[in-house]
């Protein structure tokens, strides 16, 4: 992450500012660029930048990024614009549950697919011991539903444990009987 540098403005918490395309166009210290956001999804999850071709990326609130399908003049002071989709405050960027549910189908790596029972525990917010040979950190967690893989949300994988990152308001106790339990 870049440090605040002289001559650059601060982020404005009550309006949306479109992300600069590249570092050369950056006007706010530390703000992510469109280029870096596309690289993040591509490098970490294998989501091709073309998936986001029709989207513009915005910052409102500190290091909270939004994806909006369409173009509109920047800045704009309104309540919301598209969906929140990435937090860039920490060293490791963290996708939101809603972004993963919306775009995670395109992912080709760092996707952990759970059994139905493990998926149930995951969406209830439980942490669980899971075998996983891949990278640690924020993973896209999925299960198979109605014939295809479907992303559930974000899990933090560390030391053999998958920590559910489903926000409290999105957690569900799903207790229905599965006829075709995989």
């Amino acid at each position: 992450m870049s440090e605040p540098s002289d001559g650059l403005a601060e982020n404005h918490g009550s309006r949306f500012d479109r992300l600069p395309a590249t570092p050369a166009e950056r006007e706010v210290a530390g703000r992510a660029t469109r280029e870096a956001v596309l690289d993040f999804w591509d490098e970490r999850y294998g989501i091709d930048p073309s998936v986001f071709a029709d989207y513009s990326f915005w910052e409102k609130g500190s290091r909270k990024l939004w994806a909006f399908r369409g173009a509109i003049d920047s800045p704009i002071a309104i309540e919301s614009l598209g969906i929140t989709f990435l937090r860039t405050r920490q060293e490791h960027w963290k996708p939101t549950t809603d972004a993963v549910q919306r775009f995670g189908r395109h992912a080709t790596r760092n996707v952990l697919t759970l059994s139905r029972e493990a998926a149930r525990r995951f969406v209830a917010g439980e942490d669980q011991a899971i075998e996983w040979d891949g990278d640690w950190g924020y993973l896209i967690v999925a299960h198979d539903l109605a014939g295809e893989r479907e992303p559930l949300g974000v899990g933090l994988y560390l030391h053999g444990e998958l920590r559910s990152q489903i926000p409290k308001g999105r957690r569900r106790e799903l207790e229905g009987v599965d006829v075709d339990e995989p």
Binding site: F68, E79, I83, T96
Partner: peptide, 16 residues
């Protein structure tokens, strides 16, 4: 906003 994000509505702007 909660419903719009859960439903993945990316083309909406909300004003109050």
């Amino acid at each position: 906003r909660f419903n719009a994000e859960r439903l993945g509505v990316t083309s909406m702007a909300v004003t109050n």
